[in-house]
């Protein structure tokens, strides 16, 4: 009991440190860093939705950006075309994204492994084709512009990036807590059971398809929340947000950080987005350098940064991570 309480406090201590870092960012860093952090958080939610499915169910989805983009498109359409006031556009956007995830989920839960990857790739491309071709609704390749972040409690999220940061941080923390709570719950354990042996789970009487379906929809929810903040921050949305490139970039961020972990999702997104900005400012061939970096990650750290740090049991970081109770995560 005492050990359990100590364990609980250690995790609370870690949570407080992480919360403190996130809360202090606008006070101790530059405006550029705040903008980068905003970017990392909304893309981080997209990557977390992918790593949740990969880590818990053992499937890699190449269509999480679709749910991210669908929510974004609906926010843009409802605000710019129909003038709906906040919070209706994001609520409808997330709801539509969930309904589409619910419909497509009935298809994708039937397949596993490489077939899951292929089917989600095809469905993701279908969403991209719709965004690109259905010009009367989506404005085609130009996309929808002039989307403004809302005014909350008299503060314009559009004008104050610090306010936007905290507004997004609240939902980012909520989405992260939601996924962590799911992972820790019996539901999360059931998903890991399905990942390890689907036939055994069926023999134990679990509704395997329903559980896979629920996981898929929950992951889509987190991606959709990210999509809402993406469109509010960028002020526009176009087919590139639902493209294969975005899906692959999300997968690369997950691989870089550690595809089985939520922390890896955020870390990978942070590194990828930072390098994206830094390298593209130095050279036009920045994609070449990114490619070389991924080659090194896949060859020498296939479990990503978090996985590799955990593997080196004698390194100085691992005892620290174990102390914080992250060893079994």
């Amino acid at each position: 009991m005492i050990k359990e309480r100590f364990f609980l406090y250690r995790k609370t201590f870690l949570a407080l440190i992480v919360a403190g870092i996130f809360i202090s960012i606008p006070w101790v860093t530059s405006d550029f860093f705040v903008l980068m952090a905003i970017r990392v958080m909304y893309f981080g939610m997209l990557t977390m939705s992918l790593t949740f499915l990969a880590g818990e169910l053992g499937v890699v989805s190449l269509m999480q950006a679709s749910f991210f983009g669908i929510a974004g498109y609906f926010v843009a359409i409802l605000q710019t075309r129909y003038g709906l006031p906040f919070p209706f556009p994001p609520l409808v956007g997330i709801a539509v994204s969930l309904i589409i995830a619910g419909l497509l989920g009935m298809l994708v839960i039937r397949v596993r492994g490489i077939y899951f990857l292929m089917l989600t790739l095809v469905l993701g491309q279908l969403v991209w084709a719709l965004a690109s071709q259905w010009s009367s609704v989506t404005e085609g390749d130009t996309g929808i512009m002039n989307v403004y972040a809302p005014v909350l409690f008299g503060i314009s999220m559009e004008k104050s990036k610090t306010a936007f940061y905290y507004f997004q941080l609240f939902f980012f923390a909520g989405a992260t807590w939601f996924l962590i709570a799911l992972r820790r719950s019996p539901f999360g354990l059931m998903l890991r059971g399905i990942r390890e042996s689907e036939s055994r789970m069926r023999m134990l009487g679990y509704p395997v398809s329903l559980l896979r379906y629920a996981a898929f929809v929950f992951a889509a929810l987190v991606a959709a929340i990210g999509g809402v903040f993406f469109v509010y921050f960028m002020g526009l949305i176009n087919p590139s947000s639902v493209s294969l490139a975005t899906n692959v970039e999300t997968l690369l961020a997950a691989i870089l950080g550690g595809i089985n972990t939520l922390a890896g999702a955020v870390l990978g997104t942070g590194i990828l987005k930072t390098l994206d900005v830094v390298l593209s400012g130095i050279t036009k061939r920045y994609l070449l350098f990114m490619g070389i970096m991924f080659l090194f990650v896949i060859l020498f750290a296939p479990k990503g940064i978090i996985g590799t740090v955990r593997n080196y049991g004698r390194s100085f970081l691992s005892p620290l991570m174990r102390w914080f109770g992250l060893g079994e995560d």
């Binding site: 019996p186 354990l189 059971g193 390890e196 055994r200 023999m203 134990l204 679990y206």
Partner: peptide, 18 residues
């Protein structure tokens, strides 16, 4: 046919849960 990456406790928990 076991859950290889899970612990004995987790395996038996999944079996007892229902």
């Amino acid at each position: 046919n076991l859950f290889q990456e899970l612990t004995v406790k987790e395996n038996l928990f999944l079996a007892t849960w229902k």
